[in-house]
C-alpha cells in the first residue's frame, strides 16, 4: 500500500520547509510569546491595580479576546488593520501591513489575554506580606512590582507560561488562512504542488508532535527542578 507514496518529496523539500517555514513559525512563536507576556503582565497589573475603571477595561479586553476564535481574529485583523490605519492616519489608501506584522500583532494581542490570566494568578499567589515588606522598606509601587512581586510571580508561573507557549507554537499554524508560508503553510504548498497531500501533512504532524513533546518534557523537568529549589 505504501508503494503509492513518495516519501522522497519530504527530503527534497526539507530546506524550504525548515529554513523558511520553521524559521517563520519559531520567530512568530518567540516574538508573540514575548510580546504577549509583556502586554499580558500590563493587563494583569491593570486588573489588580485597584482602580475600578482600569480593571474593568482590562477585564473586558480579556473576556472579549477569549470569546473569539483565533482564526477569526487573525482573518479580521489582516483585512481590517489596513483600513483602521487609513482611518487613523487619514491617508488616501489603506495602509500596507505585511502578513508577518499583521499576524504578529494579532498573536500578541490574543496571547496577552491568556498570559495576563496566568500572570494574575501568579501575582495573587504571592502573599500580601511581600509587598507590605517592600513598601515598609520604602520601595514605591512600581519598584515593589519590578523587584519583588513580578520576579516571584514569573518564577512561580514559568511552567504554565511555557506550556501556554507550546500551545501558541501549535496555534501559529493558523496563519495559513493568510497563505503565509509558516511551517504548515510551506508543507501544504509543497503538498498541493506535487500532489503529495498525505505524505506532507503526515510529516508536518510528526514534526509538530515531536517538537511539542520534547518541549513539554523540558517543561516538566524544569518544574521538578524548581520544586527542589523552593
Amino acid at each position: 500500500m505504501l508503494d503509492n507514496f513518495d516519501f522522497d518529496v519530504i527530503r527534497r523539500s526539507l530546506p524550504y520547509l525548515f529554513y523558511e517555514g520553521m524559521t517563520f513559525t519559531l520567530t512568530l512563536t518567540a516574538l508573540a510569546a514575548l510580546g504577549g507576556l509583556i502586554f499580558g503582565t500590563a493587563i494583569a497589573l491593570m486588573r489588580l491595580s485597584g482602580y475600578k475603571l482600569l480593571g474593568r477595561i482590562a477585564g473586558l479586553y480579556v473576556d472579549f479576546m477569549r470569546s473569539l476564535p483565533l482564526v477569526l481574529v487573525i482573518f479580521w485583523f489582516y483585512f481590517l488593520v489596513p483600513y483602521i490605519g487609513q482611518w487613523l492616519t487619514g491617508s488616501p489608501r489603506p495602509i500596507k501591513v505585511g502578513a508577518f506584522a499583521s499576524s504578529l500583532i494579532t498573536f500578541i494581542m490574543f496571547e496577552a489575554a491568556y498570559f495576563s490570566e496566568i500572570m494574575r494568578a501568579g501575582i495573587q499567589s504571592i502573599s500580601r506580606g511581600q509587598p507590605a515588606a517592600a513598601n515598609a522598606l520604602g520601595l514605591t509601587y512600581a519598584q515593589t512590582m519590578r523587584y519583588v512581586v513580578l520576579p516571584q510571580a514569573f518564577r512561580n508561573m514559568l511552567p504554565v507560561l511555557l506550556t501556554q507557549t507550546i500551545v501558541l507554537f501549535q496555534d501559529t499554524s493558523l496563519v495559513y488562512v493568510l497563505s503565509i508560508p509558516d511551517f504548515l503553510g510551506a508543507a501544504s504548498k509543497v503538498a498541493q504542488r506535487d500532489g503529495r497531500l498525505v505524505e506532507m501533512y503526515l510529516f508536518a504532524a510528526v514534526v509538530y508532535f515531536t517538537i511539542s513533546c520534547i518541549a513539554s518534557f523540558g517543561v516538566r523537568r524544569l518544574q521538578s527542578r524548581i520544586a527542589i529549589i523552593r
Partner: peptide, 21 residues
C-alpha cells in the same frame, strides 16, 4: 511622601517576609 517616610521607619514582621528569590 510615604515611601520616603517608610524608608526611615524600620519594620520587622511576624513572618519575616524576606524576599525568597
Amino acid at each position: 511622601n510615604l515611601p520616603k517616610l517608610r524608608s526611615r521607619v524600620g519594620m520587622v514582621f511576624q513572618h519575616f517576609e524576606l524576599f525568597p528569590h
